[in-house]
Design a protein around this nucleic acid. Sequence first.
RNA 1: GGCGCUAUCGUCUAGCUUGGUCUAGGACAUUGGAUUUUCAUUCCAAAAACCCGGGUUCAAAUCCCGGUAGCGCUACCA
Length: 481
Amino acid sequence: MAMDNKNIRVRFAPSPTGALHIGNTRTALFNWLFIKNYGGKFILRIEDTDKERSKPEFEKDIIDGLKWLGLDYDEGPDISGNYGPYRQSERTDIYKNYLKKLFDENKAYYCFCTKEELEAERQAMMSRGLAPKYSGKCRNLSKEESENKIQKGDKGVIRFKVLNKEVEFNDLIRGKIKFDANLFGDIVIAKNLKEPLYNFVVAIDDHEMKISHIIRGEDHLSNTPKQVLIQEAFDFNVPKYIHLPLILTTERKKLSKRYLDVSLKDYKNDGYLPEAMLNFIALLGWHPKEDREILSREELMKEFDIKRIQKSGAAFDINKLDWLNSQYIKKMDTNELIEKIKNFIPDNWNKNDNLLAEAISLEKERIKKLTDFKELADFFFELPEYNFEILIWKNVGNEKIKNNLKILLGEIGKIQNNEFSKENFEKNIMPLAKTFGVGELLWPLRAALSGKKASPGPFEIMEVIGKAESLKRIDIAIKKL
RNA sequence: GGCGCUAUCGUCUAGCUUGGUCUAGGACAUUGGAUUUUCAUUCCAAAAACCCGGGUUCAAAUCCCGGUAGCGCUACCA
C-alpha cells in the first residue's frame, strides 16, 4: 500500500453551519487515520458556500475540536498550503471560471423556472410514482434569450446538463455502485456565477486540491454520482471513494440533538478525555483484527485498515464511552489527572494542592468522567450536609450508633496528630470494630465523615482531612442522633 | 412514491473473501457470586444473536435468488 503514498491526499470538508458533531468527528478521524497508516496528506477544507448558514464561530469550533483530539492536518484555512485558499467562500473566481467553461462547452444553461413551478412539477411526478426530476424546460432556451433575461434582471439559476447514462463508481468498501443519471434531471450547480452550489464546488475542489481518496459519510452516497458527472464533464480524474456507515442513536435513528448531545464540545465539557473519545469513535464502524477494545492513538494509527470498516450504521452507546473513559482515567498519571480535574471544580477547592491530590487519588477509580469528581468529593473540601438517617447501619438503633460514635470519638482522640494515618487506624480502630461489629462501627464513622452513602473508606478519609476535622465531624454526627 | 445502501446477542463487533474446526467468539450494558463497613475497583459466572423464505451442496452465518425491514438521498442545504 505504500507505493505511491506521496500522491495520497484526503480531505475533511465540513460545513461551518453548526458545531463539530460526533458524525463529522468520526469522518475526520478516519481520514486522519487513513493517511497516518498509508501515508499522504490530510487537508481541512471549509465548505461555506451557504452564506446564510455558515458562521465563523462554527469554523472555530471545528478547528478547536480537531485540535483537542490531536487530529492535525497538513493544509487548511488557518495554516495555508499550496492548494489554497481552503475556504470555499474565498474560491469564487476559481468556480466562476469553471462555470464559464461549462457554458462555453454547452454543458450548462440558465433556468428561469420559479420555485413554485418546480415544486408543482415535483409533486406531479411523485404522485405518478416517478422519480421527481426537473423537466428540462429551460434547457433549450437560446443563449440570447437567457442573456436578455439576465440583463433584464430576471433571476436564473445555473443547471448542469445531466447526460442520459448510467453512472458507475467504485466504493472501496462497498464495491461497484450504479446510478441511473436519467433519474436526476439537470441539477442546479449554482445560483449564479458568484454563488456556486455544493455538488459543483466539491467536484472542482477535489480536483484542484488533488484529492485522491474521498472518505465521507454514507449520507453522501447519492451525491457521488452527481459529482462524478461533473468530474467527467471536465475530464477530471475520478478519485477513490470510501463511504462510511452512519452513526445512529441507540434507537437507530439519525443522530440529532433531539436524542442526545451531538456536539463534540459537549463531551469535552462533560469531562470526557480526548483519547477515550478517539478510541470510542474509532470503534464505531471499525474494529481491529484482535479482540482489543482499548487502543491508544498510536495503536489506532498502526492498526487502522480500511478493509475492516463496517458497512452498516453503528449506534452510539454512551455506556461504552463511559466505560472507556473510566479506563483511561484509571490508567492516567495522577498528576495529569489533577491538572485536568482543576478545570471542573469550584475555585475554593483549588486552594490546597495537597488535599486536592489526595482526594483525587482516592476517588480516581470511582470517576467515570471528569465532572463526576465534583459530585463525589465535595466532603473533602467542605463540611458535608446530610440527614442523620444515613448514619444508621442496617437495623441498628439510633442509641447504639450514637454510642458507637462516642467510643470512636474517644479512641480516635487518643491518636496523636503525627500518628494519624491509615496504618495506625488499622492497628488501633480495626480491632475495636471487630468486637463491636465492623458495619456497626465503621459505617456510621464513614457516613459521619463523608455525609454520603457511598464514598472511600473512613480510614482513608480521616488520613486526608486530619484529626481536628475528623473529630469535629464525628461530634456533629453524634449531635444529629 | 423513486433511487441507493445495509442486515450476527439490547449495543459495538469477530467470523463471511478461501462453505465443515461456529454446540457462533470478544467487549459494553444486564443479572448472580467472590473480595469490601458502603460505593467503586478487581475477579468469576450466567443470560443473550446468524431478519424471513427458497435454492446450490454431503455440509451455509458464510455462496445464489426472492421477500421483508431499517437507514440515507430525493433543495436555488451541505
